Structure formats: structure tokens, C-alpha cells
Amino acid sequence: MKITSIKAYQVDLPLKEGRYSWSNGNFVEVFDSTVVAVETDAGITGYGECCPLGSAYLPAYALGVRSGLMELAPSVIRLDPRALDVLNRAMDESLRGHPYIKAAIDVACWDILGQATGLPVYQLLGGKAQDDIQLYRAISQIEPKAMAANVAGYRDEGYTKFQLKVGADADSDIERIRLSAAEMRPGDVLVADANTGWTMHEAARVVNAVRDVDVYIEQPCPTYEECLVTRRRTTLPFVLDEVIGGVGDLTRGLADGAMDVINLKISKVGGLTKARLMRDLCVQSGIPMTIEDTWGGDIVTATIAHLAQSTPEEFSFSATDFNSYGTVDIAEGAPKRVNGTMKASDAPGLGVTPIMAALGDPVLVV
């Protein structure tokens, strides 16, 4: 089997809430996502999706996905999409870095492998390790009282894990955490995610002020070194996200005891092939993970579900159902939230069928 063509589609994903806000005044109202179709001479087409969280979150942006694909796609034409390690080496040799550009091609090839073998992707990633994937809900950064009220509203939708978007000034963030913590019920989990938004002195103030609260502290500062200083100042459980970009970052964090949990974003690390490696290393090292991505629609959500479904429950801290945040469906067969959980499809591959009317005409054909 050989890859014969790469196509890319641009889709807008408006938000139900109208705006998603996080640290340092950043926000997005309509996400710009890229869907990639990998076509083969066997008549099988696989699909992947990459949707950066704006342009000021990670070293990734929506136009960069599509311009990078123009550069990268010719190097994978005529390769066997089922030979995933060979494919990834070829992509890394033809384009240094930029893992997010490679992610959608990698995911689409996992979709092809599943279709070719008649197996769901979760089976190829190690088998069904849990039945119901627990989801978290991100609480967009607004006024503290309104954020606490949103916790109650999302609990009514079945969520029990809540990620507060903090990373503003220390005083308002302390209020956000305390008010939202007061809304927690037995079994609920609260995470305060600063998304790199605090300086070290602000992080020190916050973790000291909420030391009596049952809350996880996530990615307080921009750099690994600053986060490690904050980690050593608090006994609260600690999550790293933005600074874990690959196996090297992960092994460094493990050696330093820098975190209790990581957020494993599939496109940030380059796709399912590399995410699986990091997942397995975390399992062997006793580190739970939130399985997620930067953002996306139905195809991203399906990809998350397959990796999470194949992750042992005790190491699956939570996952994300991004398709429930938006107003546009781009594929049939994607997981849907049921009482705060989701499941991956049992159909071959990712188990999704793109809605071509929603994708429109391709913006790139190679």
C-alpha cells in the first residue's frame, strides 16, 4: 500500500460559549482547524486533524499547519502509511521540528492502519484498557464568582473534573480557586491551570494562599525551571503541560520529580506514534496523564478517545471532549459525552466519517 495524495481542508469551529479565555488576556472565539486526508492506492483514506489554540499559546498556529503541509507532504507520497515508524522518520528528516504539522498525517495513517486491519485504533495502541473515559471541563477565565457558578452548571452535564483557567493576577486567582473549591462535592477534582501565566513570585503567593485547598496546580510559569521552583515550594499535587513537548522533556521531569501528572497533547508531540511512546513511559513511571490536544473538533476528539481508551484507568487522569465545546460537526461517528464520560468507536480505524459538506473544498492537494 502506498500514499498517493495528501489533501487539507480548513474549517472554522465557533464556540458555544462564544469565547474561550485563558492566561495573559488570551482568547479565541472561532478556532481555525485543519483536516488532513491521506489517500492510498488501496482505496483507503485516513483522516487526521490539527487545531492550534490560537497563535500565542504554543509555537504553533493555524496557517503554519497548512504551509507546513505544503512543505512536508511531498516527502510522504509513495510511502507505506502502515509503516508508521518509517513514516515518522521520513517526516522528521524532511522537516526539522514543527511536530504539530506532522501530527495530522501521523494520525491519518493510524486511521488507515486500523481500516486495513479491520481493527479500531485503540486496539492497535495496546487494547481496551478501560471502559469509560473520564472527562474534564475547562472553565474559561472570567470573573471569579461566574467561574464558580459555571462549575455547578457543568456538573449538571455530568462532569466531575474541572480545570479552572487562572493565570491572571494573584489576588483574583486566589479568589477563583477558593470560590470554585467551595462548589466541589465528594469525588470532584479541581485543577487550577495557569497556562504559564504567573511569574514565580505570583505563583509563590497563590500556592501559599491555597495550601489548605484540595486543588492541583498546573503549569504555573513559562519555563520548566520556574515551574520546578514552584513545585518545590508547595505540597499540592502538580501538573506539567506546556513544557512537556517530547520524550526528552518527559524524562527530565521524571528524573527531577517535577510533576505528579502531565497533560499529553497529541499534536504538540507530533501525533499518536510519539504520544504512545510517551504514554507508555508515563505508565511505566507511575505518572497519570490527561490525554488531550491543543483544540479540535470531531476527528481530534476521536483521536483522543482511542489513546485514552488504551491507557490503564489508574493512569488516565482525564481526557477532553473538544467536540462538545463547539457548534459545528465535521465528522460522523465521533465520541459523544455521556454523563461526563466518552468511549472510542469500535469501528475500524478512528471510526469517523468526515462530513464533506462541512469541510468544503480542499485548500491543499499534493
Rank of each mutant, 00 (worst) to 15 (best):
G351C: 06
L240V: 12
G43E: 05
A129H: 02
Y57F: 11
V352P: 03
Y224F: 15
G349H: 08
P335S: 06
T34V: 13
V338W: 03
F315T: 09
T230L: 13
G349E: 09
V363W: 06
T45E: 02
L350R: 04
Y325R: 06
V215L: 13
P335I: 04
A305I: 05
K2E: 12
D241N: 14
A357R: 13
P14R: 08
E175V: 14
G286P: 05
E183R: 14
D260V: 12
P59E: 02
L236N: 12
S318L: 03
M1A: 12
P220L: 08
A194W: 08
F162R: 13
P59T: 01
S33Q: 01
R89C: 07
A344Y: 04
N208S: 15
V328N: 06
D321H: 08
L164M: 14
A90N: 08
E143C: 00
T196K: 13
A90C: 11
P222H: 09
G245T: 15
V243K: 02
L350K: 02
Y216H: 14
Y47V: 01
G167D: 09
P335W: 01
A344T: 08
L364M: 14
K2P: 03
A308M: 06
R176F: 09
N195R: 09
L272V: 10
S94V: 02
A149I: 01
L135H: 05
L113G: 00
I6L: 08
Y136P: 00
L125H: 06
L364N: 06
A83D: 14
P52F: 00
A194D: 10
R89V: 09
H306A: 06
G248V: 13
T341V: 12
D329Q: 11
Y136A: 04
D106N: 08
I77K: 10
G114A: 04
K2Y: 04
L236V: 13
R232H: 15
P120Q: 05
R205E: 15
S345F: 04
T230I: 15
K274T: 13
